[in-house]
Nucleic acid binder design. Structure first.
Lengths: 223, 223
DNA sequence: ATCCGAAAAATAAATTTTTTATAAATTCAA
DNA sequence: TTGAATTTATAAAAAATTTATTTTTCGGAT
């Protein structure tokens, strides 16, 4: 039971980028490349609309009105406009939220899921570090908005590090917490898990080095 | 040594309730009743900020930015459940954690101590000598605020010296403690390590000579 | 049986430690 | 005071250790 999102965006490249992002995150998508096309395509299957404000043809205000009239679902407006007064107008017309371009993927995703969400608590159990969001409650991790699949041990390991930012986690501390036993001196298990974790974090974010090695001691998050 | 928490909350009753809760748990507190007042009051004594999101005056985003700019300490945002869509924005601005109202006292305290790592030891485990700070717990050393990367043996060596300021550490004492074995008379290992240590300490602080040679005996920190 | 994650093993890479060599400083005796 | 002996300082090398990564193996879950 996928939620379907209607993307109304005239720039084909951005439209496609959004499509990929949303589909990677488990949403269905329908693309429209003008406001009028968007209104035409809009149907009962659609749970939320992403609307680019700078469209050729009809004004944003009018499109919102027509969309809302057809099926009243949450509309998130994407806009480069910083003008506050315009925001108020759009809100009063029924736009439910805003993102200003350029936006981070994870911001957009959070706003979408906030609008669609049934239980709004879950984000409260989220801890953040740089571009990583880790939710202790549902064991999900994302980096730059891209979901990351971690095994149980990898998750616990990252959680331990993120709960102790700036502090060095000694190897024995890590083994105690994540593995519940003391490691034998020549154990390579931790190295392997750190390696995998780094590899997975590199996929969405090759620039940032998150985990720092403290030689002979353990690991810590890089400042 | 108490940690002081700045409470920024416009509701006087809640503010006072938080004040009592925190003081009962060993924290010092300072109360502010608006974002602007909070920014004004914020100073170097404060270790953590509790920020209510629904403030009159400036927006939460702006206040976080200004607070972080003044002194970068952890900020925990308290917000009502319906502000959920704003959360990612706040994360990206530097809010470090969230609690949604209403929250349990225990939850709040847990988040505070997690952010402070108020491990009472962590401060006690830091020893100082002149411009050097050495933290036994997380194996970090800094000089004049500049972090210094030390290898394990270098760290142990400096720790031994700093734990015995004024006293001369004999070579055999050093070998016993740092290397766990007696040295042979013609061993140059210790000299090399002392040399490296001095070299690394010279980088941030070329003026000061920290380690003194006691001819034929060992080393000690210079008075 | 097959798939998947964890552990083990093997190998490669990086870092630290020790050794070696040489220079510099200190001591002490003549 | 001088010079030989001793001790320390430093740099550069070789050796040892630790960590990183890939591949293989193992064992449980489906």
């Amino acid at each position: 039971m996928d939620k379907t999102i209607l993307i109304i965006e005239d720039d084909a490249e951005i439209n496609n980028m959004l499509k990929i992002l949303l589909e990677q995150n488990g949403y269905g998508t329908i693309s429209a490349y003008s406001g009028t096309e968007g209104v035409l395509v809009h149907n009962a299957e659609i749970s939320l609309i992403l609307l680019d404000l700078m469209l050729p043809g009809k004004s944003g205000e009018e499109i919102i009105r027509e969309l809302k009239q057809k099926h009243n679902v949450p509309i998130i407006v994407m806009s480069a406009i910083h003008d506050v007064s315009k925001k108020v107008d759009l809100f009063s017309l029924g736009a439910d939220d805003y993102v200003t371009k350029p936006f981070h993927n994870d911001e957009l995703l959070a706003r979408i899921s906030a609008r669609l969400r049934t239980n709004p608590d879950s984000i409260a159990d989220t801890i953040a570090y740089k571009n990583i969001l880790l939710n202790k409650n549902d064991f999900t991790v994302s980096c730059k908005g891209v979901p990351i699949e971690l095994s149980k041990h990898e998750f616990e390991l990252l959680k331990l590090l993120m709960e102790n930012p700036a502090r060095t986690c000694t190897k024995s501390m890590i083994y105690d917490t994540v593995w519940d036993y003391e490691n034998s001196a020549d154990d390579n298990t931790l190295n392997v898990h750190i390696s995998k974790l780094r590899k997975k974090l590199r996929v969405p974010d090759p620039e940032t080095e998150y985990i720092e090695t403290v030689w002979g001691i353990g690991y810590r998050l890089k400042k």
